[in-house]
Design a binder for these strands. Structure first.
Length: 593
RNA sequence: GGCCUCAUAGCUCAGCUGGAUAGAGCAUCCGCCUUCUAAGCGGACGGUCACAGGUUCGAAUCCUGUUGAGGUCGCCA
């Protein structure tokens, strides 16, 4: 058990003995070294509630815990802070525990839940761009984190393969290539297995069609009709659509592979489509569907608020279930997907890792789901995040003002990482394939860590030079720390040296153990807040604590065999936790660099 | 106009279920490589936590207001 929990249990017991609420015994790592290892502020909180003198309470608690074997000293400071100092012995015991633990000191949830992480959100006909990067990196990290904590997790790409965009593609292709069999309603044979369009074609067609639909009403109606016909099962449209899906999915899988991301499920919006007719009947029966402005909607607001035009509008927009054209909207598929996830996977919690700007939409969907009795509002969470901005503070664009493709971004990162390696003359004598892998790992570490060290809710500035500066709080720094440990372990192995009993002699050793113990707290925070940056911060702190230890405490050159064995053990425990933490951030570590 | 988010060091950001002298990284400056990878370590400099009130023994954190920035407001997703 980590030290925070051990100590909190001891303090809680003391508060209870003193006739106070046990939860006041919660301790937190001390803010400063002179305040001890942990501090407990419960005496002041208790004093407030009970109208007693906080210092008196603190004195009583201090007396109750003073004899405990893991506590070396308790001090009362200021208005009633309890500053607690631990014995070196308990730190050594805890370090040995972490060393022996496959989970590097992390605990597991008591009640595992079935969790679905919906992330990345790639679309048909669109290669991924920088906007997908955060959704992918953050979602992937959360998936790993939840799974590591013990939940039963499925990651779903939630492929954008349905809706109006498909109608746009179909109608444009029907104009460009009207003679294809897909458009002949009387066609009865097999449709060609070869796609009539490439991904490049789709990528060209989609943006221009979308732009045209905004201004050209006739065209817009054409595309809407095509959407409705596709959804109602017109065979030729379905066959053509299948080509769009196949062509797009293959390309996307390659891109995800470059990011080291894999999905357990590759379900799309189309997979929820078969559920829609029955769902609509169900919603009708429940009296939730309301005719409004030619469409059918579910109202989910709880009050009316003033509108821009001087009138009134709902504080939360209604969910549009059936458009005036009779088509399913994205909210319709989102709702049906919830139903699908409940029925097929018994989902208890669904995390939607999607851009913050869609928060209002999700609020509508979640409320509708709750009203319909599908999944409760508290089982659905929108994990929103900010945008990746350029140095001008606006969403990242290329010099030409276009959107940077993810593929190009990764290419840029790799080139720059390779250049850095060359510059530093690092890994020059390693085999070419290992070098390539190091470049890849370093680049990905730089990119992912730069993203994950920021709280997901805020936007951040994309600055590749900074990410790859290889100095300070960066991915490469973390890899470097790991690789230095690996080099030592290799040497120790060659010499037949083995890790031994952990002892604490130097302050850096103590600090390192203390940091190792913080892993569980960091994981818990990251898990509960769905915030990988808390874990990223811990990993960085650990690498820092190790670097400090490394600089001050020779391992293989230690003064005695016992100290050497102890330090070797600390190095092994550190590496294990570093690699585990990085793995949860989706970052791979090379053997050397 | 409504709703949501945000405002912390020169820059990029943590900290926000109230706790002690507000932390990192970068940048600037000063030390440290005949010793396990110096992509490192140690130190210095740097803040009216946007502003004004309020609650409290105690506020960057909670409440109200003001200013400023961004997002969003049904038939695209």
């Amino acid at each position: 058990m980590n030290l925070t929990k051990q100590l909190s249990a001891i303090l809680s017991q003391a508060f209870e003995t003193a006739g106070l609420p046990p939860e006041l015994g919660q301790v937190v790592p001390a803010t400063k070294p002179e305040f001890g290892d942990f501090q407990c502020n419960g005496a002041m909180a208790g004093a407030k509630k009970l109208g007693k003198n906080p210092r008196e309470i603190a004195t009583e608690i201090a007396a109750l815990v003073a004899g405990n074997e893991i506590i070396s000293k308790v001090e009362i400071a200021g208005p009633g802070f309890l500053n607690i100092f631990l014995t070196d012995d308990v730190l050594c015991v805890r370090a040995a525990e972490i060393l022996a633990d496959e989970r590097a000191g992390a605990e597991i949830v008591e009640h595992p839940r079935k969790v679905i992480v919906d992330y990345a959100g790639p679309n048909v006909a669109k290669s991924m761009h920088v906007g997908h990067l955060r959704a992918t990196i953050i979602g992937d990290s959360l998936k790993r984190l939840f799974r590591f904590r013990g939940d039963d997790v499925l990651g779903d790409a939630h492929f954008g393969d349905w809706g109006f965009q498909m109608g746009l593609l179909i109608s444009t292709i029907s104009e460009e290539m009207p003679n294809l069999p897909y458009f002949d309603e009387n066609y009865v044979g097999e449709y060609p297995t070869q796609s009539p369009v490439t991904l490049a074609d789709l990528e060209r067609i989609y943006p221009s069609a979308a732009a045209r639909a905004k201004t050209d009403e006739d065209y817009r109606n054409l595309a809407r009709r095509a959407t409705a016909e596709l959804q109602s099962g017109r065979a030729g449209y379905r066959a053509l659509w299948q080509h769009f899906v196949n062509v797009s999915r293959e390309a996307l899988k390659r891109e995800f592979a470059a990011l080291g991301v894999e999905f357990d499920l590759w379900l799309g919006e189309s997979d929820a489509d078969p559920l829609i007719p029955d769902m609509i009947k169900d919603l009708e029966q429940k009296g939730l569907l309301v005719e409004d402005q030619g469409a059918r909607v579910i109202f989910v607001h709880d009050k009316m608020v003033p509108a821009r035009d001087g009138g009134e509008r709902p504080n939360v927009p209604p969910l549009l279930v059936v458009s005036s054209e009779g088509s399913a909207m994205y909210g319709t598929t989102d709702l049906a997907t919830i139903l699908d996830r409940k029925r097929k996977f018994n989902a208890e919690l669904v995390l939607y890792c999607v851009d913050q700007r869609q928060s209002e939409h999700f609020e509508s969907v979640f409320r509708a789901s709750d009203k319909a009795g599908y999944l409760r509002r508290d089982q659905l969470e929108h994990i929103g995040f900010g945008t990746m901005n350029g140095k001008d503070g606006k969403p990242f664009k290329t010099r030409e003002g276009g959107v940077l493709k993810l593929h190009d971004l990764i290419q840029m990162v790799r080139e720059k990482a390779a250049a850095k390696l060359n510059e530093a003359g690092v890994a020059a004598d390693l085999p070419a394939d290992e070098r390539t892998q190091i470049v890849d790992y370093v680049g990905m570490a730089a990119l992912k860590f730069a993203d994950l060290q920021n709280f997901r809710g805020t936007s951040y500035v994309f600055d590749l030079d900074k990410f790859l500066s290889f100095e300070g709080k960066t991915g490469p720094y973390l890899l470097y720390a790991c690789v230095r440990i690996k080099a030592i372990l290799r040497k120790a192995d060659e010499k037949g040296l083995k890790p031994g009993k952990i002892q604490i002699n130097e302050p850096q050793e103590r600090a390192l153990v203390f940091t190792l113990d913080g892993f569980e707290n960091a994981l818990l925070g990251a898990y509960e807040k769905r915030a990988p940056h808390i874990l990223a911060d811990h990993v960085y702190a650990l690498a820092g604590a190790f670097s400090s230890f490394y600089a001050n405490c020779p391992i293989l050159g230690a003064d005695s065999a016992e100290v050497m064995a102890s330090r070797l053990a600390l190095a092994v425990a550190t590496l294990k936790q570093l690699e585990k933490g990085l793995e949860l951030l989706g970052i791979n570590v090379p053997e050397r660099m």
